[in-house]
Design a protein around this nucleic acid. Structure first.
Lengths: 369, 369
DNA sequence: TTGTACGCGTTATCAT
DNA sequence: ATGATAACGCGTACAA
């Protein structure tokens, strides 16, 4: 039924393998035969069968991103991945896990069956055992954004603890003393690490850490909304809130609006993740993660591993810039364009290299380009 | 190297084909042999090779969504697709085109090479010829959200013209007379159709249509921002703005904020697409598209077509509900929770069946469940 | 530079 | 209910 390489070869008067070489620019083919083959192919409207090719070569030329891809952060990551992958001749599958371990497991199973060349995964801690299984099967994968305890693997992530530390420090230096922390699930490493940076900053400033001001839940807008309500009804009401990601920040802003509180006049708000495409969050001071670059770096790492499966795993930690806007009283807006009044905290040069070699067996140092 | 069906069969002491039948629950296999096979498979950690299976059966069990998937609207659509597809044993590939015809073409080529069973595509008009090519190759696909002139194919979309009409009517009945329209690209049918509904509403109300108050650009936040600035600097300044999608609405809100204008006190704003997950847009009166349902219906249509390739194409138009919130002066918020003050316009029963049979050769009538 | 023969892992077809 | 055989469409290995 369908046109095959054979048909093309026959029409061009050559053997199938010659046709294959001509179409793939592999091996030696004379200029004349190549012409004949290409002409025949286009005349027959030949469409190569990637399935057959994959079976024979045991390569699918396909990578996958496994994450909760609804978030703009992940959209940016995906873009970075596609960029590098496409350049290298790979396609990219986007798989939406919603951070649900069950969906995660189902997808991984699917991807392995389909012999996807490599997987970029934002894993929960619950999937440690599944990922161990992948290692055993020699399925290539790279962890992105999140680490998994007890799993040694290529990893790309942001310096979440450091950024949370500096974000908290910024609030403290602006005069806030009762900072509430609204974070994500305990089974996601970034949620823990951001809380840790916050704690350390308080301690280093000689302040007490009130554990009842640290709330963990989901990385969702609705949890941000709920948690903000909880924190704002504490006896010792916070004068500032730290949102551990962008969705949480949106929920928090809505809650504060509901309560008739203004930002930053009544309560300061800072948050993690870049949110430049959300108008309501444009005025927030944020830890702006290099999402697209994370995607690029992860993909490069993955492609390298496809070539060298036995190489020691690399841990790459990208710096995170703190972007200062008017949400924490440093330059309160008055109805004018708040966007004008922004700044940026330098990344402390000393802090990073220390973390860069944190992973066992690591030697990674990528930098940004 | 890898464990194959052969190995499993050998270990279970049966032929490969019996092992295949046991693992796939296809054909007749005795209870005992099935047990033996399953045990052998799990002991060997057998992972079926979907590539080989696809080659032999010429089915990949894979569907793809081709769209600008960054938008929350498409995220909801994707969810609906996954829901139905997974239940039917299909996986779903998400492909991000950014409405760029070149990317669209590249992806389609990839998908066809990989022998994807069916494609759900939000097409631009530029891709008419490519899609014609797909038809010629008997590649199954379904158009979603957007129609393509001169292309007869299964289609699922919202009643955009009708909804735009009613949205405009709502503004008019609330007393607004100078309504600016900010829409998307000319090569996307929804952008045209929403503008058309707006025009018809004005005409039916006996008002003049000022073409300089209708701006087409991209479906992006930045175009919304830019266009709002343009419209608000017209001599005859609009008292209301119609955003043809949610991204545009965000940009418009930001622009109005920049200009120091309040919504709805100074300018009313209505928009298309559900935006319930965007805090800044929670108070907008919107045409709330049944995004997830669109995904579900499109997938059902596609699965049906896989079974009956020669069936006449169906055109399904889903009703769109108008959700009234405080953005157009009907019940201006005063700092309290605007969300309380909402309502909903009934879908006019008569309008729909007429459109349902609009497509040539169509007979579709799906309804909602 | 070109061609031959075979195999990748699975399932369709037909036979038993 | 089970099995033998062949074939899906391509690329590797080797030969010419």
């Amino acid at each position: 039924m369908a046109v095959t390489l054979r048909d093309v070869a026959a029409k061009a008067g050559v053997s199938p393998i010659t046709a294959s070489r001509a179409l793939n620019n592999s091996g030696y083919v004379s200029r004349e035969l190549r012409e004949r083959v290409l002409t025949a192919a286009s005349e027959l409207s030949y469409v190569p069968n990637a399935v057959a090719s994959s079976l024979r070569s045991s390569k699918t030329q396909l990578l996958a991103l496994l994450a909760g891809v609804i978030n703009p952060f992940w959209a940016a990551v995906a873009r970075g991945i596609e960029e590098v992958a496409n350049d290298a001749g790979y396609g990219v599958l986007l798989c939406n896990t919603d951070d649900d371990p069950a969906r995660e497991a189902r997808y991984i199973d699917q991807l392995v069956r389909r012999r996807i060349d490599g997987i970029i995964v934002a894993a929960t801690k619950d999937s440690a055992s599944i990922l161990q299984g992948l290692k055993r099967q020699h399925q290539a994968f790279v962890l992105i954004d999140r680490v998994v305890e007890g799993l040694e693997a290529d990893t790309v992530r942001g310096d979440g603890k450091g950024a949370a530390y500096r974000l908290t420090q910024h609030l403290l230096s602006t005069g806030y003393r009762h900072i509430g922390m609204i974070s994500g699930p305990h089974n996601v490493s970034t949620a823990e690490e951001r809380a840790a940076g916050y704690r350390t900053a308080l301690i280093d400033a000689g302040l007490d850490v009130h554990e009842d001001m640290i709330l963990h839940g989901q990385y969702t807008e609705s949890w941000g909304y709920e948690a903000a309500h909880k924190l704002m009804s504490l006896e010792l009401r916070p004068d500032a809130l730290f949102a551990a990601n962008n969705s949480l920040a949106l929920g928090i802003l809505e809650a504060l609006h509901t309560l008739g509180l203004r930002v930053p006049e009544d309560v300061a708000v800072v948050c993690f993740d870049d949110t430049t495409n959300l108008v309501s969050a444009r005025f927030l001071t944020t830890a702006s993660q290099p999402a697209q670059e994370m995607g690029r770096v992860a993909t490069r790492l993955l492609l390298e591993r496809l070539v060298a499966p036995e190489r020691a795993s690399q841990h790459i930690i990208l710096p995170i810039e703190i972007v200062i806007r008017s949400s924490c009283g440093c330059s309160a807006g008055d109805g004018e364009n708040n966007l004008e009044r922004t700044g940026s905290l330098p990344v402390p040069a000393g802090a990073l290299p220390v973390e860069l070699t944190a992973g066992s067996g690591s030697e990674g140092s990528y930098g940004q380009r």
